[in-house]
Structures are given as C-alpha cells and as structure tokens.
Design a protein around this nucleic acid. Structure first.
Lengths: 354, 354
DNA sequence: TAAATTTACGGGTACGTACACGATGTATTT
DNA sequence: AAATACATCGTGTACGTACCCGTAAATTTA
C-alpha cells in the first residue's frame, strides 16, 4: 500500500479557484440551486465541463446526511412453496450492502392467496411515505391500481418477478416468460421422437389471473408450431393444489394417454409431479421451474431432468440497486431488465447461483 | 427524500466521549497503532465491542488518501479467438467502479503463444511494485515460479480462468473444469442412443501443457464410465489450429468412423468444427465452449447445439473485487470460487450474461 | 436620493475518519 | 535534584461536499 500519487483530482475547490468564485457558488451552480447570477453560473459550468468534473461520491454521501427509505412488497414464503425466500434473500443482501450508504429498507409481505392482505399492505406502505418501492405483483388489477397511486404521489417504484400491462414503472427486473417457455420446448425437442407425446401441466388455483403460466405455455407451443414435424402436445390444468388432487388428475391423464415422453410443468410445483411419477414408476423426462429445495431433491435423484431458473435472488437485489441508483444519483435504469434463462441439471446445480 | 432520522450512529467520537479519551486515542486503539497504554486500549476496545462499532467506510476511504494499485496479467485477444476480450471487459468494469474508491488498475497482456512475452511482462509488473496482482495463468511452470516470487515479495495475487497446482493464491475464481466436462457428458447422454458414437475433439497446439482440455475430457468420460450402458467414445487431438489441418483431421475421422451422433469440442474452437460440419453437411449434434462471436454465429444457425460458458467477464470482475476487499478492508476471500456452469443454446443466448 | 428589498456571493461548519504534531506526564539517568 | 528519555495522549488539520448564515452589491421602491 503506497501513498497517494495524487493525479490532481479536480474537486469543487479547484473549480472555485479557476472560476474565481467561492466553493459555495460552485456548489450552487452545479446543483442549479438559486442564488447565482446567470453569467457566473455559465462560467462555472463551463469550467466544470472543461475539467470533466466528477463529483466524489464518497464525500457527497458523507455530507448529505439523508436517509433514503425503500419499501419492498413481496409474497410471504408459504408452506407450499419456498420460492419467495429467494427474493427476500436478495433484499437482505441489498439491505446489508446499502446500510453503509444511508439507505433503510423496510420489507413488507402479503399473502399470495389473499387479495385483501395485498391491498392492506399497500395502504400501510403509502402511509409510511417511502422514497421508493419495490413490488412483486401477483394480483394484476390491484397492482395496477397501486402503481397508479405511486405515480400520482411521485413515488418511484420498480417491479420484479412479473411485469404489469402498460407498465410505467421505473424498471422491471425479471424473466421473459414467453422466452422461457420457448427454451423449454427447445430442450424438449431434443428428448422426443416424432411419435412421442408431450404433456404440459399447469398447476395453480387461478390459472386465468396467473397469466404467468399461460405465457410460458404460449412460448412452449410456439416453438413447436415453427417446426415442420412436431410431437403431439397435450395439456392439463390442475386447479386444486393438494397432493391428492394432483395425483388424481395425473393418473387420469396417464390412463387415457399413452406414449407421453416429456412432461413440462409451468411453475415451481414440478416437485409434486415428480413425486407422482416416482411413486407410479413412470419413465418420462421432466422439465420444470425454479431452484427450490423441493425440486432439488428430485433433481438429484434424476426424477427431474431440467429446471429453468431465473435468479430470483438477483432479481430483487438488482431491483433495489436500480432504485437506489435512481434515488441517490439520479441514474435512470433501463425500463426492462430481462434475466438470463438458466438451465439447471443434476450435474450443475451444485455451482448454481440462484 | 426526507431528512435524516439519525439513528444515533456511533462513531469514533462517541466512543471517545464514553471512554473519556480523545478521538486520537480511540483511533490508535482501534488500529492497534503504538502509543496507547495497555489499560486504556483495553478499555476503549471494550466500549467498541459493546457499541458494536462499525467504521464508516465512506469516511474511512475519504480520509485515507491511499491509492491502491492492482496489476492484471491476461493473454491478449488474438485473431484466432476473441475469448480474452471478456475478462478484459470485467477488468474494465471493475476499474470504472473502483476508480471512485481510489483504486488504480494497470492491465498487462501477454501472447498466449509466447512464453517469453509472459516472463517479460511479469518482470515489468514486479518492477512497478503493485499492491496486488490478478493473473490468468497459461504456462504452468512459469506461472508457478511467478507466484512464488509474489509470495516472497509479500504481494497478494489472485487467479482466474485456470488454477495452478499447489496454489497458494489469495483466491481462485474460475471454472471447475472436470465438472464442466461431466455436465457436457450428461447433456450428451440425452442426445444419443446406445448404438450411437460420440467424438471428443481437442484442438490446441500444446495439449499436454494445456491440461485444461484433459480435465474436461476426464470429466466427460467419467460420466459415461458410471453408466451401465454407454455409447462408444472416440477422440482426436488436433495440434495444428489452422483451418486446413482441422478439416483434414475431421475428414479422416468421419471417413473411418460411422455413426457419430455427438461431437464434443473441449474448448472455444468449436466454431471451426461447426464450419466443417456445415460445409460437409453432416447431421450431428455439437457441444462446445464459450460465448464468443464466432460460436454464436453457428449457435444461431443451429449448427452448434450447446455452449458451456463460465462467465469470463464475471471471473475477472470478481477476482479484482476480492483483491480490493482484501487490500482495502482486510477481508480474506474464500480460496476457491467456482463459477456456475452455464448452458447456452440458441433459445437463451440473447439474455445470457457472459 | 435615501431607504428597503432582493440577489449574489463568501465564509464557516459539519459529516466521520486518519494522521502529524505537540503537549503532557512518568520513569530513567547523571 | 535536575536533566533527559520515553510513553501516552490531546489537538488540529485534512479529505470533498453540502448547506446555513451573514454580508456586499444590485435592484426596486418611496
């Protein structure tokens, strides 16, 4: 560690010297605060651009003793799926890092099965008057309504996990659902012969609202629509998510249809399908979603062949960082930030970063 | 943006007040600099731990006007492969971010085909007395020798891309080559029938020294060794890297061997194989390495099916960050940081982050 | 034209830490 | 007992920026 070999870093002081004004005036000019003559301001800004002045962010944040408060609203991890632990982890990570920079993050949670809880929490958040909001929307209409309110109150918000129609958020960081379905079909295409059949399985209480699944299915089908020869594709919607109902629906399907070679489950509930296939000793290839404990168990056993993952931890982390950068430095993020579509198998899950 | 609601952040000043000493003494005690009575020091440290004092990193780096200098040494991007542009990009990214924190990064390059250039550059680097070094080793012996010198001079160094035997570096950030070969075999296993044959292709001037390739091949074979039924595996080593030589070698192989269904190329030169296969209109599945322009072109066309990628940009970026954290804050990184093994196809490359 | 007001600008202090220097006190030497 | 050495500690300044406050100059009003 050797001492500074100062490369004459220009600061506000040097600018003041060159412009023959005080540093106070330079400060006002740069932040175009009132109280500086037009001519003086132009002169100062002239020098600022000449010297390509870059403010020292350290000193800046040290001097502005502002505390930015960011509220996050995501579903709470349920017993049925541990998926939402991942985004929460990303939030915690951002919280730890940013606490050094005077950022406070307040996490809020809603019940994915209760619209009321969602509306309730949005009210509480608005009351706390945060400087920015990160939202993982589930209920389309209510979320759109909430986002309008944020817009009106001039509170910037970012979305993760799922985008909203006609969205005007500062940023969306999440998957392109269509593409992930498309990729799944591409993978499936390697696994089937023309005479084989493919089964798409949607498992969700409300498949209409959750257009998640439909977009993935659409992507999946679109891939095969483009091929000249395509296997037969069947699909079932399972609207009761308990084990027994799922077993029944699958049993029925496998009784009626022979030659199913690949099963594509459009969300993280793939483990329940794996459970069924294991129990009934069916030899089919299985593709599903999300790096969660339940699924990994079956991935290791070889019951699940491919998991499509979209870095939920990083989604939340990046969302907050984008918000932070905007609030603290005025950096406007790109409106859409699509996450990579990762393929996780039993031979690479051990080094996967969720 | 609302004003600070100071949550009485404890600083060195508050500690000084409580301990009835000056902030100067607290400073000495914390950094255990000399000049503090044993009793006083203990008292101060007592209070420090009671208050769970966390130094303000902003103020710290603002006050210590040290400039840390990090030298990086990687191969220069050659006409034959653009691979090394990626790590360089990671270096540049780190450089941009860290310039705010008083870190200077000096990139050096060597010619991957010239041991002399490597040795020469290591000499220049040592002469510049950097505070830390990031190295992408190619020549095993010379690199080991260089690392010993660093050790002796007490200059911390980190490795990327490829580890060294008996390595004592501060950190290695890169792929686990064996695992990546193993994964490739797993993918290949979905693509073949028992009667099919698999061809492994090593393309490199010095396959002995470049044990890269051998480790991957080892991982690949190991996978099939564990299976009860395995396809026949053939392999060829191509030691001349010009187009003509590669064409000849491949022609010979495909003339002598029928039923080759999958070709596994153990490095980024897979595009040259794709070129051959395209020209000769062979219908085989192709697996190779690295997200580089040459390969992407064939990926899009469907001539390459899978590319295994290991985030070279991030490797370099993380390596430098690890070095920075160590030099600036004394944070010791984990010795090995294995990168994820990513599977890139023509349906997900557009959102891949190299 | 003098007084009142507004506008423009400089000076000073604070943020939290590091470090040089100087001022104490205590122990050792002559 | 005085002189010296040394250990211990406090003070002051600096890092680069923000922001408050006071004052001088320019402008308007009486």
């Amino acid at each position: 560690m050797r001492n500074k070999e100062r490369e004459e870093l220009v600061g506000i002081k040097e600018i003041a010297r060159r412009a023959n004004v005080s540093i106070g005036t330079v400060d006002r000019a740069i932040h175009n605060r009132p109280g500086v003559a037009k001519k003086t301001r132009e002169h100062v800004l002239q020098i600022v651009s000449e010297l390509d002045y870059q403010p020292n962010l350290l000193a800046q944040r040290l001097a502005t003793r502002k505390t930015l408060r960011i509220a996050t609203l995501i579903p709470i991890g349920s017993a049925e799926t541990s998926f939402w632990q991942a985004p929460l982890q990303g939030i915690e990570q951002a919280r730890t890092e940013l606490s050094q920079h005077g950022i406070v993050i307040d996490p809020y949670f809603y019940d994915q099965d209760s619209i009321g809880s969602f509306v309730e929490k949005t009210g509480i958040i608005l009351q706390s008057e945060p400087d920015g909001i990160l939202l993982a929307p589930s209920f389309i209409e209510e979320s759109v309504s909430f986002s309008r309110t944020c817009k009106r109150l001039n509170i910037p918000y970012v979305l993760i996990d799922s985008d909203l129609p006609n969205n005007e958020s500062l940023n969306y960081t999440g998957p392109d659902l269509f593409d992930s379905g498309y990729l799944s079909a591409h993978l499936a295409s390697y696994l089937v012969q023309p005479e084989d059949k493919i089964l798409i399985v949607n498992i969700s209480r409300e498949i209409d609202g959750h257009h998640h699944l439909l977009k993935k299915e659409d992507g999946f089908r679109t891939y095969f629509d483009k091929q000249q020869t395509a296997p037969a594709i069947r699909k079932i919607d399972i609207r009761k998510t308990d084990v027994e109902s799922i077993d029944n629906c699958l049993s029925e399907e496998f009784r009626d249809t022979t030659g199913i070679k690949v099963v594509f489950v459009t969300n993280s509930r793939v483990s329940t399908v794996a459970r069924y296939l294991e129990k009934t000793e069916k030899k089919v290839l299985l593709i599903g979603y999300d790096y969660i404990a339940e699924n990994l168990a079956y991935l290791k056993k070889g019951m699940i062949d491919f998991l499509i993952c979209q870095k939920p931890v990083e989604q939340a982390y990046r969302g907050i960082i984008a918000l932070y950068q905007y609030l603290a430095y005025g950096i406007v993020p790109p409106p859409k930030e699509f996450m990579p579509i990762d393929i996780v198998t039993r031979t690479n899950f051990h080094v996967y970063r969720n």
